[in-house]
Structures are given as C-alpha cells and as structure tokens.
Design a protein around this nucleic acid. Structure first.
Lengths: 124, 124
DNA sequence: CCGTATCCCATTAGATACTG
DNA sequence: CAGTATCTAATGGGATACGG
C-alpha cells in the first residue's frame, strides 16, 4: 500500500481520469458537498442519524438520506438497524471507508488550516 | 506542519466544520467536480489552456474558465500571459497549490485503485 | 490559440409535510 | 427517532456563438 514515486499521470496515462470511467463516478460520490463531511464525521466512531445531522451542520434530511444511501451502496458506510421502539440505527465506516477516510482527513485538515487566509474569516 | 495525533474533531470541535465558515467555501472550490481534476493536472508542471482541456477530459470551455478563475482568486493557481500572437497562457500551481496537491493526490490514487471494484468497470 | 457571453436544461438542494 | 414524499428554488454545467 506504499505510495510509489511515479506521478499520477504514469498511474493514469492520457488524462487525469478518462471522461466516463468508474473513477469519475466514485470521485463524484466522495467529493460531493456532503459526502466528505459525512465520511469524516464517521471517523469519530459509529453514529446515529441525529448525530450525523448535528455533525454535518446545515445538511437537510433529504440530503443526509441520499448521501448515506449512496455511500452505503458503495460499500463505504455500514448501516445497522436495531428492531426496537423507538427505532435506533447506527452508521459506521466499513474497512474500505476507513481506508478512504485516512486520505480524506489530511485534506480536511489542510483546508481547515488555510481557509481563513484564503477565503477570509468572514462568510463570503 | 507535522500532522498531530488528535482527531479532526479536536481540531474542529462541534461539528466537522461550522455551517457557514470559510472552510466550507474553500472545500467547495477544491472538491468541485472540475477543481480536483484541474489541480491534479497541474502537478505535472505548467500547462496551457489546451493542455488542461485535454487532461480534464470532458470539461467545457465555460467550466474550465470558471474553475481557473476561482482557483486563481484563491491563490492556488498562477496565470502567466505572454503578449505574443497568437496568445499563449501558462497555468501553474502556486506554492499553496502545490501544498494542496500533496494531500489531493493520495486521494485520487485511492479512488483510481478502488473505483473498478466499487462502481464496476463499465460506465454506470 | 485563448478565451468571453448568452441561453437553456439537468441536477442539486432546501422547505415542508407526513409516517412507522 | 428515523426516516419518506413532494414541491420548488438555486446552482451547475453544456452548446453555441462570438471576439482578441
């Protein structure tokens, strides 16, 4: 799993990714506005629906549902429903999801470190 | 610049990122469909408009222009116009952009490695 | 060759209401 | 608590045409 020294262009000759390939599809799932935030939220351990709504501040119920369904279908997130009343559902990262999170977190950290300097502290 | 061992939640208590903060804005620029591909394309060195169109396969002229303007305004991409006829313009990563690319490339590599298994080799 | 401007459609995302 | 359904507004993105 060690990263090689070749450029990403040697890994993927002829463009970053071909136009209509699986990588583009997965990239869009992962890099989606809410996909990133949900995945990174789950690095803190299994969480319930309402936890995720609090962590990914601003997400609507519709987008949370949609995002979770996509990530679950991709095998990145595991959904565990417990047949109790009131209902309780826990979401967690699969091993694959953990792997992804490991490369995602450094990116989030970098963004967090540099955003104020780049965008400005106030909302723009 | 060494990564600490604290979780990203200690770095950003109370949610992954606040709802309306500079980090969310920058994240949206960087994680945009084309922003990622343009930034990673430029890790191969300075490139011209037509090079970028070829590298980021499928991008329209409109979106290339829009993406480049955003990334330039964010100080991630440098634009160098040479006053010749026909016009020649080179785009390159700024030091800040190089820094970002360093955390972006591992993500792209991971996506490239796993996309076929997750999404399926054919276009879905 | 390197763009800009305009129009238009498809997708995304928010608000609201409702259910087991 | 954990969602689904529907409707609408905002945005993203493609096609085309044009200009330096």
């Amino acid at each position: 799993m060690a990263e090689s020294t070749e450029t990403i262009f040697e890994q993927f000759p002829g463009g970053v990714f071909p136009a209509a390939c699986s990588s583009r599809v997965l990239l869009d799932h992962v890099m989606s506005k809410w996909g990133v935030l949900v995945l990174v939220s789950l690095t803190d351990g299994p969480q319930r629906w309402s936890d995720l709504r609090r962590r990914a501040q601003g997400i609507s119920e519709k987008m949370l549902a949609q995002t979770l369904r996509t990530l679950e279908a991709d095998g990145l997130v595991h959904r565990e429903q417990q047949p109790v009343m009131p209902p309780r559902v826990d979401y967690s990262l699969t091993p694959l999801g953990e792997e992804l999170a490991e490369v995602l977190v450094p990116l989030l950290r970098w963004v967090g470190r540099n955003a104020d300097a780049i965008i400005g502290p106030a909302t723009s």
